[in-house]
Amino acid sequence: MKAKSPVIWPLLGLAALVLLNAVHDLGFLKITLLDGHLYGVPIDILTQGSRTMLVALGMTLVIATGGVDLSVGSVVAIAGAVCAVLLQGGHSLALTLAAALGAGLLAGSANGLLVARLGVQPIVATLILMVAGRGLAQLIVDGQVIIIKSPAFEYLANGFLLGLPVAPLLVVALYLATHLALRRTALGLFIEAVGDNETASRFAGLAAARIKALAYIFCGAGAGLAGVLAAANIRAADAYRAGENMELDAIFAVVVGGTALTGGRFSILGTAVGALLIQTLTTTMYNLGVPPAIAPVPKALLIIGVTLLQSDKIGRWLGGLWPKREAA
């Protein structure tokens, strides 16, 4: 077997959290049937966590190229605003979804152009859209919260297919597709090469700039789809608050999942687990009744814990404490 997978630590964290909740209240794990679909806390975690999972998927690739995309939260707001305005204008669902995806692609292209072609620092380049994008979203909805009355649109986030929640199914399908596209072809390797050493990979014949730009475009598209889910979830486009701080949750998920912020290696499975870990943690706070003012503290502690465990230095130090177990 190859070296210890980085996914192991977030998985352990997730298992520990689930155990903690189950010990506190066994009802946490209970899944029942209600009106012909599954109903329970684990289903909530999957449904609520699906948006972060989606945003974090694109973020994984961007971070793997050595960059970061801070604009995803604003892109979520833009895509939601586009959906609301189009649906209110009586346009079809297909056109609405295409437009939201298009908005995400466009936003990603803008970031890609700035970072890959013009060489702007990723943090600065995406910060521009992060700030301007929210203003743009408010402009689209004219500063109002627009209510969406479309059962078909809402189905995407709150519906059930054969008793299973639709949003997580969609996201899992996207994860699988992305995994196959990256790991069954050389594309994943190219992204890691560019993240590891852009100059060397260019000399080796890779179109480094194009690969980088593609990562941002993919990330923008993911954020656009997450915007659709966010708007469908609450049947409204809230340009002020939609996607707020989502970039941070996505970056947490990616980092906790074992993708290095320095770029050069990534784990899609790890990101999925990381996103679920964060959502489970939020739900745990509600479940244990932790006062909201101190709820961020355990979240921070867990993230520190998992990232420390992943660090090579800590690993060696721990290995030094138990030399025999490491050798075995």
Partner: peptide, 22 residues
Amino acid sequence: DSQSGDFRRTGGKEVMEAFLKK
């Protein structure tokens, strides 16, 4: 029980879901 929904619609939905299960 008392939790923060952060004045947001998403927050209100998410916390209420948890309350109802709990």
